[in-house]
């Protein structure tokens, strides 16, 4: 039986994978859940790693905001400036991107240098 090299459950694996991509010469951004309010699916410390070639592993929500975070991550990869993102039902972006569960999350996106 094949065993997966990485899962979204073990933060160590996502960090290792991000480092592996970086060591292979790819530019990589790391998104980390820093704060949650109400019912958010992933706790603080959850990671999503995004490479410049579009590959990503891990999660910061149940898939609700990953698309937007990956987009922001590409911007962070290009500029090198970290970003703080907030999503929730009260957010201006609620129409486009938000948490169906009614929770709110704040996410840090930083480039690995």
């Amino acid at each position: 039986m094949a065993t997966p090299a990485v899962t979204d459950k073990d933060p160590g694996d996502i960090l290792s994978l991000a480092l592996e991509w970086h060591a292979a010469g790819k530019r990589v951004a790391l998104a980390t859940v820093i704060k949650t309010w109400g019912s958010s699916p992933r706790p603080p410390g959850s990671n999503l790693a995004v490479a410049e070639d579009g590959r990503f592993e891990g999660s910061v929500s149940a898939g609700c905001v990953e698309g937007a975070v990956i987009e922001a991550a590409q911007e962070v990869i290009a500029t090198g400036s970290q970003q703080l993102l907030q999503y929730g039902v009260t957010n201006d972006e609620a129409w486009a991107v938000g948490l169906a569960c009614g929770g709110q999350i704040e996410i840090l996106v930083e480039r690995i240098e």
Binding site: G12, S16, L19, L30
Partner: peptide, 15 residues
């Protein structure tokens, strides 16, 4: 974040 710092964190975890 510097890769060296993250790498040190992952190595400590492995230890």
């Amino acid at each position: 974040m510097r890769a060296e710092l993250l790498d040190a964190a992952v190595r400590a975890q492995a230890d």
